[in-house]
Design a protein around this nucleic acid. Sequence first.
DNA 1: CCTCCTTTGACCTTTTCTGACCTTTATTAT
DNA 2: ATAATAAAGGTCAGAAAAGGTCAAAGGAGG
Lengths: 151, 151
Amino acid sequence: MGLTDLVAQFIRSALESDQSLELRRGELAERFGCAPSQINYVLSTRFSPEQGYIVESRRGGGGYIRIRRVEAGPRLILMHALASVGSSIDAASAAAVLTNLDAAGAITPAEGRLMAAAMSERALAGVPAERKGTLRAEIFKQMLLACADAG
Amino acid sequence: MGLTDLVAQFIRSALESDQSLELRRGELAERFGCAPSQINYVLSTRFSPEQGYIVESRRGGGGYIRIRRVEAGPRLILMHALASVGSSIDAASAAAVLTNLDAAGAITPAEGRLMAAAMSERALAGVPAERKGTLRAEIFKQMLLACADAG
DNA sequence: CCTCCTTTGACCTTTTCTGACCTTTATTAT
DNA sequence: ATAATAAAGGTCAGAAAAGGTCAAAGGAGG
């Protein structure tokens, strides 16, 4: 088993006792004798939102990385929606996803309207056509993540 | 938790009982065993006007620092928010506006997080720096409109 | 050989904290 | 009154302490 999986396993087992985990990137890297950036690799390949994890971090003195596991329920539905968005999406498809989320009770109608507004043609007017889809997807994902964050 | 957050917490809790607080920079610094200028750092990063605080001070003998929390009515705050957005805004300022809207009860915390996410650097990465502010402002306004629409 | 996943290292950004030096105000001495 | 001194607080640059990004090298499997 490679380094990546070792670190991933370490994190997963730590998450079994506590459902939220806070760690220092540098410390963890030292413990496994690897480059700090390796930790970022582990996080992005093994603890992505699509895989049901929320990762937050802070730089500077006293910085940290916090990892949370998302359990079944509305939050997990949001994560699945997030995974389905992909790297680009048009306004109509986004609206459809929102309708489903609302129907499933994962978001409130108000939240749906808010997100639709953020991704509307009107809001994104001025963005070159070939970039709109990508940008919309990025905004959508960040918003869905924020929703899951709140739960 | 770092020094900055300790001091900030101390001040916030003092502000809970009294809505205006007066203190000596030197005393506070000594109590926390730090450089006096550290207090200025705390004030400028945690108690800025954008975050809803007014800080006044006086030098010289008998000098002091006075901190007040500003609270306006929801309507006034919302108007102010709309006006303050203008044609361009950065992520930090937008976040501060949202904090105030939340504190004034004009939006829910969940809505605040959602909007912050939609305008985050992360969501808008990939947008040329010189267009980011404008786009963020556009998205912000559309979202605020949607909020007003719903509310 | 070719491709995909891993791993590293160089360089970047953000946040905190301190120390040296400056300005303002009050008090005290002449 | 005026001048000197003491007692605040203000500013700013820089060091230190995190974490982030990205391209390139390394390796395993087909």
